[in-house]
């Protein structure tokens, strides 16, 4: 019985204190700001030469992925969806192609590319297009009118403030940095709770 008590005590302590660190070793990208809320009725259609161009500021170094919600009604789009990333002088930096058949309707789709090391506070532009898709195979993205790092978007040759409700992902400096950030964030929240109690 003593063995069982030790085994369970160690297992539970491992689960609560060590397992999060072990699992964090698998985190290869960390998100920047969370995805802004959006109105599901405000959407832009993308097909053929009808694309969207988005201007934004990167929140950190090692920009490695851009995620946004995409509608693919009835999963009809089975064509390529291409994201081309440019710097603010329109030099092409990265191109990512995914196939529409891998895009679930309304899901957050991540376009992952090789990290851009000095991306902190830099302005970038990307275009999102599905040139082989016909009007029947249209995909849709959402838009939000929010000032800040999601600066402006161009659609149908007109420029609007705000843009796609997106999430930027960054390659962490090291695995250790990820673990440290997770635990320090947790402990600061626990301490905050303690502070609330005493005050």
């Amino acid at each position: 019985m003593k063995k069982l008590i030790w085994f369970t005590t160690i297992s539970i302590l491992f689960l609560v204190f060590i397992a999060p660190a072990v699992l964090a070793l698998g985190i290869s990208l960390v998100p920047g700001d969370s995805q802004p809320g959006y109105n599901p009725d405000l959407r832009l259609s993308i097909y053929k030469d009808r694309d969207v161009t988005q201007r934004f500021i990167s929140q950190d170094a090692n920009l490695s992925a851009i995620g946004t919600s995409i509608r693919n009604p009835n999963l009809k789009n089975k064509q390529d969806i291409i994201l081309a990333l440019f710097d603010d002088r329109m030099n092409l930096l990265r191109t990512v192609t995914i196939n529409g058949q891998n895009v679930e309707d309304g899901s957050l789709v991540k376009f992952v590319f090789d990290p851009i090391p000095d991306s902190n506070d830099e302005t970038y532009i990307f275009t999102l297009a599905s040139p082989d898709a016909g009007p029947e195979e249209t995909i849709e993205v959402f838009v939000v009118d929010m000032p800040g790092w999601i600066q402006q978007y161009t659609y149908d040759q007109k420029v609007y403030p705000g843009g796609l409700p997106m999430v930027l992902y960054f390659k962490p400096v090291s695995k250790f940095a990820v673990i440290k950030d997770i635990y320090s964030n947790l402990f600061s929240r626990l301490l905050h709770l303690n502070f609330q109690k005493t005050s």
Partner: peptide, 22 residues
């Protein structure tokens, strides 16, 4: 069933691989 149980620690676990994906 696994990694997202730890979301109280951080929402970054949404990006951790599950046993299925590994």
């Amino acid at each position: 069933m696994t990694v997202s149980l730890f979301r109280v620690y951080s929402t970054w676990y949404d990006l951790a691989p599950t046993p299925y994906t590994i």
